[in-house]
Design a protein around this nucleic acid. Sequence first.
DNA 1: CCCCAGGGCCATA
DNA 2: TATGGCCATGGG
Length: 300
Amino acid sequence: MADITIPKPLNFSFKECLWFLDRNYDDCLYKVTDTSVIKPLLIDGQKVIFELRENAEGMAVELLYNESGGNHADTITAYIHDWLDLERDLSGFYQLLAQHNAFGYMPDEFAGLRLIGIPDVFEAICWCIIGQQINLTFAYKLKRSMVEKYGESIELDGEVHHFFPKPEVLAEATMEDLKNLQFSRQKADYVIHVAKLISTGEFSKQELQALPDREAQLKRLISVRGIGEWTANYVLMKTLKDMNCITIGDTGLNSALDAHGLVKNKKDKAEVRAFFDDFEGWKSYLVIYLWRSLASPDVK
DNA sequence: CCCCAGGGCCATA
DNA sequence: TATGGCCATGGG
């Protein structure tokens, strides 16, 4: 029995989204099964765990855990729409891809894949800091060790579900603690610093959203120690759903462009930016689809 | 043993 | 403004 039903959006594939959520990596902030994803979520500080699966009408949400016992249906529905970017009409993007000589296969191959978000700005920034410069397998390992040490969790049917640590908790962590979790001293410093900024209210998602344009938002993000151009663009894309972000300098992005035989010098940021000019309004989606292509045997 | 992973900071010139 | 060293670890 579904506690909530979400109608199937146009150009949406639950299967593609599920694949992207998993990608054979060990993400500790949700669990992907063959047919569903189980997601722990904090709502006004109250723990909720829901399972999302496909059904005849679209998607069904089943509440597995509800700490407060209150009715959070509207909040959970809104969260899922934001998380999986359900309100986006991808037809314009698919038209652009279809007429491109190297991307024409994408609307079919990756049909219905959405930009899967990270609505929590602290989680997004921490994930970027952790992922900087190291391979993704090790990055997920670092994230898991941090979440298991500093985050709360709920056990259901023998499975442990983790909530991302609160900034006020990580603000009290020491360099020594994080270095013991195999963080480099830079990563430890950046994470603790950002945790302090957010827990004291010196930085917030609301503040970022209130800025007039993307340039101002990038500048504000980059003013924070540990956040460079790559991280700033990643956060605007995944947290604010800005449609025109390029994770410039990204090694995954570069190798995907390379695999498609595009862009002569992938280290040339101006050339990469110029390449994206044709995708105005869909630059962020192109980044996602290029990342997706890295796992496609046809391309690599 | 080497180089590179979904970077960013800092010192130096 | 540009360049190089550094960081921690695992895989090729």
